[in-house]
Design a protein around this nucleic acid. Structure first.
Lengths: 237, 237
DNA sequence: TGGTGATATGTGTGATCACACTTGGAGTCA
DNA sequence: TGACTCCAAGTGTGATCACACATATCACCA
């Protein structure tokens, strides 16, 4: 007789359905938009406005926004509403220092775990970045860049390190797009990423770390230049 | 005529009153207890149980627990209830690596800002640690130890760095007490902290960083030894 | 003209309720 | 004795409502 065991054995190809809670879905949606620079710095995200926008009550929105607040991806604004944080030069340097320390650590820890399959993935992300540049696809470039880095860091072990790194990228997210639209910088970035892949192929931890640091320092330099050029940058004021 | 300006000018000594929300109070209370090792690893903290314990509804508890969850200070347990995370050797090494990277960075950034008043505070915390040892006051020792370190890190600049460092201590908190009760380790810890103060007095960034790293490595070594001795450590199972 | 006060709007906070889901164990039947 | 079914307890999730507080606007009065 066909009991439960037999039935489940026949379903090996099925994937586990994603039963994400509303709060989780809203969180991921907001997170992606912040990371990709969809929201302008200073833009307010109140519970009721977001709730109405996505068509749910304030409860799941409340949880999602609180999560982002704890991650420093949102900060309390002048009238208590949460808003996308603006970046000043001081905070930029703090985040840059933390990125160098943590992403340098992550790539060193990842080196022993990187295999040929990982390298193939990284070359794919590298190609995506190149193609995004020639097709003038900023969104695609940012996504491929994050895919490239996060793939390395995920090989570094457990989740605390990468979750902190992600929160730092989240904080920089609203500004990445601004500098990525200047294509002079991207040529240099592609050279750096090429070197990183080379270092990983050789298993050279020092070179890989140096490549990651060079990438972060270049991004920080570009962003600092942008901040000076657009002093105050009253976006979405 | 006595207008508002005059009145406010007379109140220079007043401190801003702390109008903490319930959620904030519960969060701080839980946080302190986790940090000081009040809860055993594996202990469950469900919304309703905490709400009943503090005499409020589940709403503020819900927010407080979610904050702690995002900070990795609590994790979801086997029956969806949040619980104090247990530490395995792998996670311990990950946190240790992150602490070395971030606390080393923090002390280097702090060096230029440390003045004589800071040194006086640090000597006071050092004295508190010594006295706590002789009076067999583990709670006092842990509090003074955190006060010592956090005073240094707070001189490192803005808040993102220290908030991440705090979350790492929070994750280790439930275990600090266990190793601190072995007084053989504390003699060594006092020597290290003495050296750190000396390095800060000299403004020697490299020595200060080395001292912080030595402290972290010693704590990690002790904890790793404890984990091996109490394999599985089925506390509050 | 300039300060004052009422008010409307928007904000997060917290309580209460209903619901879906998971887990564990008692009870039942083969 | 063993496997199965069912039910009770416990869990987080989400909706709805009421409230306190902050801000901006505008009418009003000296």
């Amino acid at each position: 007789m066909a009991n439960r065991m037999d039935w489940t054995a026949d379903t090996g190809g099925l994937e586990t359905v994603a039963r994400a809670t509303l709060q989780e879905q809203i969180y991921q949606q907001l997170r992606n938009r912040i990371m990709s620079g969809f929201f302008k710095p200073g833009q307010a995200l109140s519970m009721r406005s977001v709730a109405e926008a996505v068509g749910v009550s304030v409860m799941p929105v409340r949880d999602a926004l609180r999560r982002l607040e704890v991650e420093n991806a949102l900060v309390v604004g002048h009238n208590r509403a949460l808003e996308v944080p603006k970046l000043d030069a001081e905070t930029l340097m703090e985040i840059s220092d933390m990125r160098i320390a943590l992403e340098g650590l992550a790539v060193e820890r990842a080196i022993p775990a990187i295999d040929e399959a990982d390298l193939e993935h990284l070359r794919g992300h590298f190609t995506d970045m190149s193609e995004s540049i020639v097709s003038d696809d900023t969104d695609g470039y940012l996504a491929a860049n994050w895919a490239f880095h996060s793939h390395i860091y995920r090989r570094a072990g457990a989740g605390i390190l990468i979750s902190v790194i992600e929160s730092l990228w989240l904080r920089m997210g609203p500004y990445f797009r601004l500098t990525a639209e200047d294509y002079r910088h991207l040529d240099n970035a592609m050279i750096i990423h090429h070197d990183i892949v080379g270092a990983l192929e050789m298993g050279d931890a020092a070179a890989a770390r140096a490549g990651i640091i060079a990438d972060i320092e270049a991004a920080t330099r570009d962003l600092k230049y942008w901040l000076n050029s657009n002093d105050g940058h009253e976006a979405a004021q």
